[in-house]
Design a protein around this nucleic acid. Structure first.
Lengths: 203, 203
DNA sequence: GTGAATCATTGACTTTTGTTAAGAAATGAG
DNA sequence: CTCATTTCTTAACAAAAGTCAATGATTCAC
């Protein structure tokens, strides 16, 4: 993608974000422009890393388009623990205040555009627009309940059921993500997932 | 426990909570008393349910003392998905705003005291003490990161490793909770956990 | 304290998953 | 388009977990 295309893209993304702001609360045009200054847009190619293990990162990301994979390196093996897609927020390990080095990698499964806020800008944003603090607390709470349910689902189901859940609730992932990464996300080996798929097909 | 003992206990719990408030920010004595009016204290006996599947509950709980088990009923079988102990907060499914019936049960593993806030009182609390909104957002974010890591750990480990983790990070649970409930929390049958323990012991 | 109920362990057997290795299919770079 | 690389599938065997049933151990109510 050349530079002018990139700029065009960033521009249309900014328009999207503006719309998000005006949907959230009754902000004036100036207020929105002011807020926008605190947010940066960045795009990554397939395979690019947003964050690597050990890096200290005090940023929050929101996925505009694309797909990001979160994984850990355990004994040299990649263990995928999450896939973020359009609209998802990624809270980095030290998104609160401490300078904690990341335990995991964030890597782009495909061409991906992100909106990025540094911790400092986020603080400024909440100072400038206190209503966002309450909105953010609410969405964090929803997100927390969401994670609790994901953990509960993981505990109460086996790999086959988890694959069927994926098929039901995030079918787009199956086309976007290589199967060995899905396998690791489901907590099994690629061979096992292959057998599970065969078993389901034969039913 | 008789009524006067119960009152005595509630009284000492209120003192603890007061201390929490004065640790959080520089509140005046009156402010703290005002805040305390929005919080109720309740104690439960071993085996008592705080919340049952299907119940609509717009409350937030914080565990003062004791242990609470979260479980789902799947095909008549209890699947334990979490143990809350002293200091933990429990966000009920509709702790944000919607009236969503609970998918899970909350049951006391032992005698347990909780501080309880209704959704309404929580809103009032944040209105009255806006600084709590920011503090709450921060702790929610930490809690979210915490859950992300628990999910990641669950995905990247097997049952034996999870048992060893429990031994390392929450050893007190092993004495407080029956083994078949731990097994279900680890995602295996009681028979399997028994064998895992034997295997570890033989090493 | 005693008996009933609950909980933990063990054994035999089945099913599922991991491991290793090989080959087929798909993808990507030139 | 072609070749090299990556990804997916299959097979054979080992290891782990599920299932069912029986037996100890512990807990609890009376």
């Amino acid at each position: 993608m050349n530079e002018s295309k990139e700029l065009l893209r960033t521009d249309s993304i900014k328009k999207e974000i503006k719309k998000c702001f005006s949907d959230l609360a009754s902000f004036s045009e100036e207020e929105i422009n002011e807020a926008l200054k605190l947010i940066s847009i960045k795009s990554y190619k397939k395979g690019d890393h947003i964050l690597k293990e050990g890096e200290v990162c005090a940023k929050s990301y929101s996925i505009i388009s694309g797909c990001v994979r979160q994984y850990y390196l355990v004994d040299g093996e990649e263990k995928t623990t999450f896939f973020y897609t359009e609209g998802d927020s990624i809270f980095s390990p030290n998104s609160t205040s401490e300078k904690i080095p990341s335990k995991y990698y964030l890597s782009c499964v495909e061409y991906t555009s992100l909106s990025i806020m540094t911790l400092e800008n986020k603080k400024e944003m909440y100072n400038r627009f206190p209503i966002l603090e309450a909105l953010s607390r609410n969405s964090l709470q929803k997100e927390l309940v969401n994670y609790q349910e994901m953990l509960a689902t993981y505990i109460t189901t086996n790999a086959e059921e988890r694959y069927l859940n994926l098929l039901k609730y995030r079918p787009e992932l199956l086309n976007r993500v290589p199967q060995y990464q899905l396998a690791s996300y489901l907590g099994v080996t690629p061979e096992s997932l292959s057998r599970i798929r065969k078993r389901i097909f034969l039913k």
